[in-house]
Amino acid sequence: MNKEDLIEFEEECCHETDVTKLLAEKSAWVRKETLRIHKTCREIRIASCLSDIEIFTVLYYGKILNIRPNDPLWGGRDRFIVSKAHGAVSLYPVLADFGFFDRRELERVCMENSIFGSIPDCRIPGFETINGSLGHGLGVACGIALALKRSGKNANILVLMGDGELNEGSVWEAIMFAAHHRLDNLLLIIDKNEKSMLDYCKNAIDLEPLDEKFKAFNWKTEIVDGHNVRELYYTLKKLKEDRDGQPKVLIANTVKGKGVPRLEADPLCHIKSLEPHEIDEIIGGLDNGCRS
């Protein structure tokens, strides 16, 4: 976003309905941009990238994250780790829009000499770590949270994980660690799209009751509709400000492949790609939806 947009945005944010409207509009735009990237880069996990879009837009356009796009490694920034990195391509348009890098990079994802792959790494401004292998993000975040506390920094560390990722044992080592060390500057968001690669999560390893599990591990727990920007916005805002000795988790109920009916209905959508002509049709449909 350029400076004028930012001022405009701040004015808009004065009114609750305007915030919601802006976040919904941005989400629709990011969804289209992500599909456009998929048109040139077939390798991205498109269904995973579609379930976390509202989470990204609320974090950035909703100013939940305290960041400086012109100084990505500013010491006081809120850190954000996308542990489900295969679903992070939909963050590229957001970061480009905020000026972390040139917008033209979006046209070169997965191409030779581009640093933008189907899974991002910390060469890209705005990304803190290298993920891709699941189950690492939360433990690294615990170390960052501890460091921030010890060095007296007021910043937060946020992590986005998928629900399938909770199968990894290392995640539970980190969940226990965070609660024991009262890391209340740590906020975990679970993109609970209910599918891993092979099937619905409940058919592989049933995670329910997930909120009760976190509560039992002494985490502050909230559940929202992960595509409802209003709910996301207010709950994330509240959780981020909560500092009462508990790590915090937001379980965002989402739909894998959101916006593309063929993917939404397919238990194997994780590995499915869309044909270019299909993408054009979907983008056209989204445009019509925006106008109505």
Partner: peptide, 21 residues
């Protein structure tokens, strides 16, 4: 910090601390 009997988390927490300098 005693991370408990958890070598995976030992490395991950160490990484976070090292990233912060």
């Amino acid at each position: 910090v005693s991370v408990g009997i958890a070598e995976q988390n030992l490395i991950n927490v160490s990484t976070g601390l090292a990233l912060e300098g």
